[in-house]
């Protein structure tokens, strides 16, 4: 059978092949879902390795500026910072989205209050060696939090507890689990998944999943 015998329709994203009979079990497609995403009520997990368990007495979060200057918080110090409750949609590159998730954490604006920097890029680090790059402007102005509660409960280890970054406007791999620091960089550098072929920026609304998207 030749390809030309199948209907092909045009999209802004390119041409698509129609699969006859597909679509009967469709999940709700809604305007608040980015392209290629589907809605889930579970909370799936994407991690490259085992889940690290970090004792709170050892937990520390450090911002390192481009001159090596450090700003650190222990767990009790972190808990003393003003916290916010955030309700937001999250979008994972493995295609699931979850709407209206609720988090509690510290906005990055608070953490960066006393950080002097001229660098535009950051590398976010997590316990276990995970890294991901995020431009500084995507972390500031109420766009990102270090969250330690999900749905009113302490954040579970498999979802990044004790604390994870939450940058909901980017694919969720940018929201580093088990976060323990942010390093300021003069130039953008790839983190863990970015090295493995994922997009440097990761905007779900522009479907920036892989390099070149």
């Amino acid at each position: 059978m030749s390809l030309s015998s199948f209907m092909i329709i045009g999209f802004t994203a390119g041409m698509s092949i129609i699969s006859p009979g597909f679509g009967g079990r469709r999940r709700s497609s809604r305007p608040d879902l980015p392209p290629g995403q589907y809605l889930t009520h579970d909370f799936p997990v994407l991690s490259a390795g085992p889940t690290p368990r970090i004792p709170l007495e050892r937990w520390q979060f450090t911002i390192t500026d481009e001159t090596g200057g450090k700003h650190s918080w222990s767990w009790p110090e972190f808990q003393d910072l003003p916290a916010e409750d955030v309700t937001t949609d999250i979008h994972c590159v493995t295609k699931w989205s979850k709407l209206g998730t609720t988090w509690r954490g510290v906005t990055l604006d608070t953490l960066f209050e006393n950080v002097e920097t001229t660098a535009d890029y950051t590398m976010v680090h997590g316990y276990g060696g995970y890294t991901t790059n995020v431009p500084l402007e995507d972390l500031l102005d109420g766009k990102a939090w270090v969250a330690y509660q999900f749905d009113g409960e302490p954040l579970a280890p498999e979802h990044g507890g004790p604390a994870r970054l939450v940058v909901p406007h980017l694919y969720f791999w940018k929201s580093a689990k088990w976060v323990n620091g942010i390093e300021m960089l003069q130039q953008d550098e790839p983190g863990f998944w970015e090295e493995a072929g994922y997009h440097m920026y990761g905007d779900p609304w522009r479907e920036q999943r892989y390099q070149g998207d």
């Binding site: 999209f11 699969s19 597909f22 290629g36």
Partner: peptide
């Protein structure tokens, strides 16, 4: 990626 006749599509890995 699967696409239905009405343009609805779904992706999985």
């Amino acid at each position: 990626r699967l696409t239905a006749p009405d343009g609805y599509s779904a992706q999985r890995s």
